[in-house]
Design a protein around this nucleic acid. Sequence first.
DNA 1: GATGAATGAGATTTCATTCAT
DNA 2: TATGAATGAAATCTCATTCAT
Lengths: 189, 189, 189, 189
Amino acid sequence: MKNELTKQSILLFEKKGFNQTSIQDIVNALDVTKGTFYYYFASKEQLLMDIHHDYITNLLKRQYGILDDEHLTQKEKLMKIIHLLITDIADQGPSARVFFREIRYLSDENIETIKQKRNQFRLNIQKVIEEGSKLGEFHNELRADMLSFGILGVTNWSYNWYKTNGEVSPDELTKIYADMILTGIAKRR
Amino acid sequence: MKNELTKQSILLFEKKGFNQTSIQDIVNALDVTKGTFYYYFASKEQLLMDIHHDYITNLLKRQYGILDDEHLTQKEKLMKIIHLLITDIADQGPSARVFFREIRYLSDENIETIKQKRNQFRLNIQKVIEEGSKLGEFHNELRADMLSFGILGVTNWSYNWYKTNGEVSPDELTKIYADMILTGIAKRR
Amino acid sequence: MKNELTKQSILLFEKKGFNQTSIQDIVNALDVTKGTFYYYFASKEQLLMDIHHDYITNLLKRQYGILDDEHLTQKEKLMKIIHLLITDIADQGPSARVFFREIRYLSDENIETIKQKRNQFRLNIQKVIEEGSKLGEFHNELRADMLSFGILGVTNWSYNWYKTNGEVSPDELTKIYADMILTGIAKRR
Amino acid sequence: MKNELTKQSILLFEKKGFNQTSIQDIVNALDVTKGTFYYYFASKEQLLMDIHHDYITNLLKRQYGILDDEHLTQKEKLMKIIHLLITDIADQGPSARVFFREIRYLSDENIETIKQKRNQFRLNIQKVIEEGSKLGEFHNELRADMLSFGILGVTNWSYNWYKTNGEVSPDELTKIYADMILTGIAKRR
DNA sequence: GATGAATGAGATTTCATTCAT
DNA sequence: TATGAATGAAATCTCATTCAT
């Protein structure tokens, strides 16, 4: 039941937004009553926090799976992280959109917790760039911090428009963006 | 008064979100009454629409100023558009954040109007890329559509984190991102 | 201007009701401003009172025109009064409907004034019946009071449904109702 | 509770009118809170619709009870319907007055529904008159439609003035009006 | 585990009226 | 005569949450 409530909530939060979704909406969708909701969740915000926590924890875990693979070059790591984000937003659309859009409705304390994890994710990208620079895979003197934000922008922005069932697959989109980030779009003279 | 209400609303919407900001909050900040608000705005949503409309209209106008300059190469146009976005988000932070975050609270009809203009802005970027490819400034066979989304991601994402008063100026950030987009971060072998 | 305001108000009060019609609605219809309204009327209620007072005063005056005509039998007087009411409701539809429906929105004091005049109108009918009984035009021992209410019911109810432009003219309707009231619908054995 | 809210509302609507009665007034009278009201009714209008629907449904049911009785002549049916209306208005005064006065505050859609039922009630009277004409109980060539409106006027108007506790009982009033309608008030020469 | 009646605080909106100009 | 900005009181409605069962 808790699981069903969470799933249904994600769908509703995505469609109508956290604030526009009432507990009543959620329990109606499952044909149970409000009491049931409060049996499983301490508050509406707690549910939102659960969703956020699950999402970022899972993402971080998978990022570490990439980072910890010693056979990969930094370039490969970066590509795999881009791929991770694109596919995740494509596959878990609703969760991803709730994650990016509704963080504001968490309590200050919870926002802090989530932002820390989000920042950790970004810092890990920054480190890949720094390491790549040092190892000669990437240019020297890159602003790894600014670039990590830029790369996250490229990928995360896709939650605003990207639809899996379009003509471009996640794999293709990954290649398009990785090419742009690694080699640019300008022709060499 | 209408102007003051709009300005104050933007600040509050940015800080607390559209939904979390009550009309009471707005009028309290200016020491007037709710009646005054409704003398100037038909509804809370109408105010939000005004904000959105002003923002995107201004942005589009400035984009066309760049596009219509015949002395510029496509590469230069692209750089100027990136610069336009970065500086705009830096300078008009609150408006920009309201624009990106609160569009959801518009009516379906108004969302449509705004999205059309937003899409026009993106299509204009796409055309620059296509033209650049044709003229030999950029690679051939680029997915100009996907790249236009990616470039917007890089710049627009900055509303989430970028602060003007940090160590990196808008001009510098523009250069960092233009370099990445045009020539990539990977070292050529 | 005062006259135009009154006329327009009657039309709006009929269509939307007194309460549902705002001063704004009224002045909008004449392209003036609220200040203008309050220059001519002390309050919204005062306007309604004016409308009521004009209506019932006019009706009473015309009733006395009938009553004071010494050439008429009581039967003829009754018929003329029925005719007066039917035609008035037909001709002055909006005023009539406002008069019957919106009295509630007058102040207690004003209600009293209007009700007194309305009752005078009814009492005058009652007197015609009593006089007719005494003179042998009508049956003896009629409950003239109850009948006066009944006759007013027949005629006044028409404001609820009667439309002049239908197939039955006010003159025809008067005859139908006068026949019913005077001779009944049952066949004599 | 729902029932108590409805009952109390009818009393308040009668006394002050639908518009002049706030939800606050209603719940204050029962010492509950506004939330309670909205737990039971979707809106203030829904409550009004419930009242209307119940009233006219009950009235129609009782009318059919009369119409379907094959032992009755048309004259008797007409008398019983008059009796039904008079007693109903006398007994259920508040409901009746709300029914006649406040229909305007229903939504267009709901007005339509109620008016259809009201019209059915009237058409049933019209049919009795037509049938009575055919069977020789009533005159030929009566305008049964206009007369049905007139008869309803006689009875329904009583909600405006009739008080049970006066000197005339519902049974007596029924006789007075039935006599007028069937045989008229004029003396036969 | 689950129900559902009840709460209470707050949100948006309406509008008659005032008043300085 | 007329304007229009501003007020303030009240109205409808929403909803997260509680709690006895």
